[in-house]
Write a protein that binds this DNA or RNA. Structure first.
Lengths: 168, 168
DNA sequence: TGATCGAAGCTAACAACGTTAGCCAGCTCG
DNA sequence: CGAGCTGGCTAACGTTGTTAGCTTCGATCA
């Protein structure tokens, strides 16, 4: 039995239930019926937990995108839906620099694969699409649009603009 | 003499020189030759300082965009350039929710105006462009692209896709 | 069976954080 | 001259991540 993953599980639970500020070493230990310093028997520190959550988020997002479909609109819609359903996990995974040393290799590529499929292998186009999807989600999550903004329309415009890459 | 702005000045200096983690109340007080609690005679707390920096960043970015020009490519290029030149300030300003209560009104609109000009008043399109510019910058700043990624190409693709809105 | 040893818990503690309370010097103004 | 505001100070509190060092329990091995 790997206690490390139980720690990460608990961290995820707290993150979803009570937000990022609640994910504290003591609160985390509490969730496991343990004292804070004991966590360090299973985990190197808080940053390791964050990296693990980041990795989880990337895996799940990748899976969702892979299952989503092959055309740009549904793919992008799936991206947006996942992010809005798991806002804390999304923020954690998207905002922090990728620690490529610690991150299992292949995960990044797996998450990006569906995008590449949709652009017909055009890497630059895939990155551009990733960029606009992340940007719109990020602004939306950070409340950067006025409360009355019609975000669906903005997404539609962006999808429309990029559709050229998918229908050659 | 308004000491409040001196505090914010010092915060900005520390932010640029030593990064966000260094912007601490004690470090800030130190920069001003003062003890930490004295800061509270000029400023309500740390969040107020952050909001002030956010406002500054928005103002400057707005000014840069206004001066940049009237076509999409130069506008977007100016956006990217400013963000990469002031990465910490950009992160601070873009990642945190906007406190519209405290933020002087009009600043948001002023920053968005050049974008609107370029889309011919199409709000949804302006938001879409803002989204992709922010997204690409954000991913770039967070090291989310592989080290060998050709980001210029990604930007070019995005600009190209959106060019339809500017050349009717 | 008994000795050993590592895994996994504990308490105590440290440094740094944001913040509050309360005191005191000095300047300004009536 | 005295009142009061301005802006500094020290001491302290609660919380954060983390370390040191002790104990306890269960498995492994001679």
């Amino acid at each position: 039995m790997n206690r490390r993953s139980e720690v990460v599980d608990a961290a995820e639970r707290i993150l979803e239930r009570e937000g990022p500020d609640a994910v504290t070493m003591r609160r985390l230990a509490d969730e496991l019926g343990i004292q804070a310093p004991s966590l360090y028997k299973h985990v190197a520190g808080k940053t390791e937990i964050q990296t693990a959550l980041q990795q989880r988020a990337l895996e799940r997002l990748g899976a969702v995108l892979t299952a989503a479909g092959a055309d740009l609109p549904t793919l992008v819609a799936a991206y947006r839906r996942w992010a809005l359903q798991h806002p804390r996990l999304y923020e954690l995974s998207a905002r922090h620099p990728l620690d490529r040393q610690r991150l299992a290799s292949g995960i990044e590529a797996a998450a990006a694969a569906p995008l590449l499929r949709v652009t017909g292998g055009n890497i630059a186009a895939a990155r551009a699409i990733w960029g606009f999807a992340h940007g719109l989600v990020d602004l939306e999550l950070a409340n950067r649009f006025p409360p009355d903004a019609d975000l669906d329309a903005a997404w539609a415009h962006a999808i429309n603009a990029f559709a050229v890459y998918c229908t050659p």
